[in-house]
Design a protein around this nucleic acid. Structure first.
Lengths: 182, 182
DNA sequence: ATTTTATTGTTATACTATAACATATTTATT
DNA sequence: AATAAATATGTTATAGTATAACAATAAAAT
């Protein structure tokens, strides 16, 4: 089973979609992310401040991962202010601790989390063509990792699982245009 | 099935060991790594130069991952010379391309590969206590990832799988000393 | 109101990685 | 062997990522 969130609802599917449709209403993604963040932080008794909210919104600018300095640039572009890297990193750390954002270790970049409520660590799927990132919750992967870890005597396991390839949309595009296309 | 290399032989086991025993003869690990590298590079028709060999040896200093600048420091400590970062990075890139070394994305560090011949990407197990890194080849994980990727329409998949926890040795130690121990 | 705790501001610096071009070495070709 | 082509290394500079340390502010608890 694949769970993925698009707009205001969870989509449960056995095949598609993974990374949101290019034509989806992205404002809904952002709105929901903020709404969920508000709730999660209330639950966690942590403070979803103006700064943290702003950083989260900027990370949710798209489904492509953003670097910390990318967020910084967006902030400084908007406000003509002079935000320091430290400020951004602290906000990102907070968001990660509250599971609202994922760090993509293989890219030194960050992406909004699609299921901050889920107790499981998801798997990130990263399209090398379009650069977008999605998140899947494959029980078989989670279980296989847990079983593998246990088998070798590993305790208290957390995992970084980043799957890189070409997404469904990009594959369709390339099928249409043919392999020899520029 | 878990495959792992200790000294001069492959160990196939369903439970232990994972990260080599603390008392193992590490010189054998290094010697074998160099021997294998020689063979692999001959097969690949790439040149296993003195510099590359030296960097590989330094990465194999232990089973803990080393940063590029760590290798650099070791080199400059040994020779009183003045090696530049670029030199180390180039050697590391070569070693990675020839599958003799893994990059640990979650730590910006590098570790010798235990099975450069295997066509499969392995999974790294990283002990947060002792810092050592091992490598497992869990078919169930590989297959689950491939299946998950395919299910969501992903192509040409490569994966970063880094499992973090506490290794068998460290768990035993902590069991002996009790949980309340300092 | 005051103390405590958490958040943000600010400056400086550490750590990681690559670009660009020069030189040297090895391999292939004549 | 001499030359050309390809590969590897040296060198300098710089880009990109992340954190330390301390000051100032704002919110929560007593």
């Amino acid at each position: 089973m694949v769970v993925f969130r698009c707009g205001s609802k969870d989509v449960v599917t056995s095949m598609k979609p993974t990374i949101p449709d290019p034509n989806h209403d992205h404002r809904q993604c952002v709105d929901q992310a903020i709404a969920v963040a508000n709730r999660i932080c209330r639950q966690n008794k942590t403070r979803f401040t103006k700064l943290r909210r702003r950083v989260l919104e900027l990370i949710w600018t798209s489904h492509e991962p953003v670097g910390a300095y990318g967020v910084l640039a967006l902030m400084n572009a908007e406000t003509e202010g002079n935000v320091a890297p430290m400020t951004v990193y602290r906000a990102i750390d907070f968001l990660i601790e509250n599971r609202l954002v994922h760090r993509i270790a293989s890219r030194n970049a960050y992406v909004g989390c699609s299921h901050p409520d889920s107790p499981h660590a998801g798997q990130l799927i990263i399209c090398n063509d379009c650069g977008r990132v999605g998140e899947i919750l494959e029980d078989t992967i989670t279980k296989a990792v847990a079983a593998g870890a246990e088998r070798v005597g590993f305790d208290g396991v957390s995992s970084v699982i980043e799957i890189q390839g070409r997404c469904h949309d990009c594959r369709e595009l390339s099928d249409i245009h043919g392999n020899a296309g520029a």
